[in-house]
Write a protein that binds this DNA or RNA. Structure first.
Lengths: 134, 134
DNA sequence: TGTTGACCTGGAGCGCACTCCAGGGTGAAT
DNA sequence: ATTCACCCTGGAGTGCGCTCCAGGTCAACA
């Protein structure tokens, strides 16, 4: 993985290079291109005179949203549906509904994991007893 | 997916059939066989006279443990390592260490998801304002 | 005795989300 | 002039966790 992340290596164009955007978003360069290909970006990023991607601040903010949705387990397919609504006038209620439904999903999942975590705690207690009384 | 889940369709052998064990554990019949193939069971289940699997209560309890580990995101590979330790005398401290490390992992992940959940909440609030003021 | 229905095995196939690669371009620095 | 680091595209490959399938056995029931 690249670590240098040049800010402005060439051309007059503004914005972050793809590697800088990767660092800023916590994604990889490959994933950025993949998301773009999959239609997860609101708009494709601008390009420098030599054809390289240049990410504006707003692009990077959107990447943050994508990360948040992915990390909470929303599938690429569903994110795409969500993004597509951004191109539809007056679709705010629909977007809201998707987010609320997703929120419920996440909460539910959180509850489930917490339950399992308690089970893990109990198992750990069990081992602690076992190891102590040895 | 089978729904009938016969308890004792044949033979003198005791224990649940694979489909009953599937229902009891919340896994599918295929997954049960897959886990066994992958070495995630403490012992392979007993077999009836005609070669069908028969799950004892303890087997089903262990399946519950597997479900808990999987649902908290432990990879099959790691579960196998954990299970393998059960065959090693005096490996309780090692098993404990694995569980504790996993618990930290889960907690960390839980924290992260909660953070993202808050971001979702904020986005929802934003849409609520937007939709209300329309 | 024939027909179910659940079970068996080995192995192929699948959906997902990346991840990597070949082959090529560009501009800055040495 | 060449070296270097970074970028590009299209497409193949990967790892994971199942999921499905063909072809067959078995026991119970009509």
């Amino acid at each position: 993985m690249t670590v240098t992340a040049n800010q402005l290596p060439s051309g007059p164009a503004e914005g972050l290079t793809i590697s800088a955007a990767a660092v800023a978003s916590g994604l990889t360069v490959d994933t950025l291109r993949y998301y773009e290909k999959e239609g997860l970006t609101l708009h494709p990023p601008e390009r420098s005179s030599s054809g390289q991607r240049r990410y504006a601040e707003s692009d990077v903010r959107w990447l943050g949203t994508l990360v948040m949705l992915r990390k909470t387990g929303m599938p690429i397919r569903d994110i795409r549906r969500f993004v597509d609504l951004y191109r539809v006038e007056g679709s705010e209620p629909d977007r809201l509904a998707i987010l609320e439904s997703h929120r419920e999903h996440v909460r539910e999942q959180l509850r489930e994991v917490q339950t399992h975590l308690e089970a893990i705690d109990r198992k750990i207690d069990f081992y602690n007893d076992k190891v102590m009384n040895k």
